[in-house]
Design a protein around this nucleic acid. Structure first.
Lengths: 205, 205
DNA sequence: CACTTGTGAGTACGACTGTTCACTGACTTG
DNA sequence: CAAGTCAGTGAACAGTCGTACTCACAAGTG
């Protein structure tokens, strides 16, 4: 049973999680580049020096937060894209984004904010994850008969539009309150339908 | 001749501009929420207290930077969108973005970064400007015969896709070096063409 | 001319920052 | 059960931060 972590390891993980949770809460109204190490430890109820047992600096913590937010999302998104009927897929995708924003708004806010933020390693971590998503979306499209005749490059282009659009929608849902969620969801679905129409006629000319 | 500012006013403007330029340079590798007042004045070669003569705080300076970056862009963008031929308009739009990024990368980086950044007043200022752009783009589309039968709401939806896409392209051009500019420009043009195809067939069903 | 106004300089303050170090005490291992 | 490991502590370091003062001086006004 190598699964059961020792008491020691378990408590370490707990402190690490406390630091990440505290950081995420503080990041709701500031950027990572202004997040102080002491600030985080204070909010987590830990001595400042304990921070170094888990992260090199706040940028390192940021990268860990990216992993936590986006790392477990690949399976979910692949599932939603598996639907072959266009209308259904759009509905499921938008619903997935809406659920994500509803259930963990702080995580989503963090990623949207730091995607172009002032901390390079975090920007790169997010960029890498999003490129991964785009590749998966492209692969899902490639499996459909509609994609016959498409160049791989163009499939990636299309996937890029989808992924960018998801991030934009998530961000819009965040900035608006829950009362506007339905309006934004409807807007997002129409935009995806527009893109989907473009896809259908891509090879026409 | 009320145009000629007094020597006094002129020097004040000069100091103000020096502060904004210094801030913009510092913001290339950090976010506004971590930008210090002293940091800015030090870089501008001015005493810390002089800052208060021009701005209430760094957030206020940020709003001024938004105005400087986006305020003068409305005319330019309207001109590019005036072209009625689809292909030409796409080329001109992408070229405009590329030129903007080439000529004032720091300004563009600032806007892309703070659009979802940690300083609320700046986020709102950027949001307001982008909504203004979207309205102008929608108005430009509305003038074309292709838009007959379109609901105003759908025109705004289409315009939103355009504006979001411009920001994304600008940001992508920033993160990649100049050697990748052509590849990203080509990608952006294909994505706009996809959207344009969707537009043509929007009323088909 | 004297007078008001506003700009920028200078100083000082208390609070906060990241990082280092020696240390404790609970858990793990032989 | 003893020895070793190591997450977390608390004190001290040299900085930076925003802000509140006072002050000199130049520009515009009557």
């Amino acid at each position: 049973m190598s699964h059961t972590l020792g008491i020691r390891q378990a408590q370490k993980q707990k402190t690490r999680q406390a630091l990440m949770d505290a950081a995420l809460r503080l990041l709701e109204d500031q950027s990572l580049s202004s997040l102080g190490l002491r600030e985080v430890t204070r909010a987590a109820g830990v001595a400042p020096t304990a921070f170094y047992r888990h992260f090199r600096d706040t940028a390192d913590l940021g990268v860990a937060l990216v992993e936590e937010t986006l790392g477990s999302l690949h399976a979910t998104i692949g599932e939603a894209l598996g639907d072959s009927r266009d209308e259904r897929r759009i509905d499921r995708t938008v619903a997935l984004i809406a659920a994500l924003v509803r259930d963990s708004p702080a995580h989503v806010r963090f990623v949207a904010r730091e995607r172009h933020g002032g901390v390079q390693p975090v920007r790169e971590a997010i960029g890498a994850q999003l490129r991964l998503f785009a590749a998966e979306v492209a692969a899902a499209f490639a499996r459909e008969p509609e994609s016959a005749g498409w160049k791989e490059n163009d499939l990636l282009m299309l996937a890029g539009v989808y992924v960018d659009h998801m991030v934009m929608t998530a961000s819009a849902l965040l900035e608006a309150g829950p009362e506007e969620a339905e309006r934004i969801g409807s807007l997002a679905r129409r935009q995806l339908r527009l893109v989907s129409l473009g896809r259908k006629h891509w090879l026409d000319g």
